[in-house]
Amino acid sequence: MKILVCISKSPDTTSKISFSDQNTKFDESGVQYIVNPYDEWYALVRALEIKESVGGSVTIITVGTQADDPIIRKALAIGADNAVRVDAQPSDAFYTAKQLSEYAKENAYDLILLGKETINYNGSQVGGMMAQLLDMPFISVASKLEVNGDSLTLESEVPGGIEVYEVLTPCVVSCAKGMAEQRIPNMRGIMAARTKPLSVVSPVDCQNLTSVVSYELPNEKSECKMIDPDNMDQLVDLLHGEAKVI
């Protein structure tokens, strides 16, 4: 099975978020980038498990600049066979999906996997957009994926339960928790990653559909009011009378 895994970079989860240029730009100074956890822990690892059980290949792709090569190497160290970087700054979800789809179209993948969202823009947009651009079915937020020949069985958590679906390849699947377990790259993987092929391709022309005008930080919390553990009646009174949430 020929699998394409789309990965994105995202700031390390402990990063302090701040903005520059009058709150119009994410301030990258001091920010450590990681592979977006949903892409890495679930999409990439599940792709590797599928390859290990039925054979095939796992290619990773990202839209980014040379500065993003370290996260590509990290994904290669976890076990992907080769990597592609579309040499552009991803400016909105549609732009990104368009670049990824153009590459995917020319290389006939059986399965395209990505995380259910990134932890920086949390948009959940790219997978559905790719499915539409590639005219493939799209299963979103899947927590299980089994391969049986050219058909897939998938599970998705929906309100009130879990639904099990069947779909034929090729298709696009966005991956959530439950799909696989995080893998820590070992020394051999890290060494091998240095020489695995990374091809850089040029972007195609594409207009953004949306743009971010500015950012702001949420309001700071006021002082925390401490309550005596033996006086829960007081807490209930405050939640009712002062906070008005019950």
């Binding site: 700031p11 978020i17 903005f19 932890i119 920086n120 823009y121 949390n122 207009q207 953004n208 559909l209 949306t210 743009s211 971010v212 005008v213 500015s214 950012y215 702001e216 930080l217 949420p218």
Partner: peptide, 14 residues
């Protein structure tokens, strides 16, 4: 909400 709730973005649709 962006950055998983750590910030808010104003978005315009083009």
């Amino acid at each position: 909400n962006v950055f998983s709730g750590k910030a808010i973005a104003k978005v315009s649709i083009n």
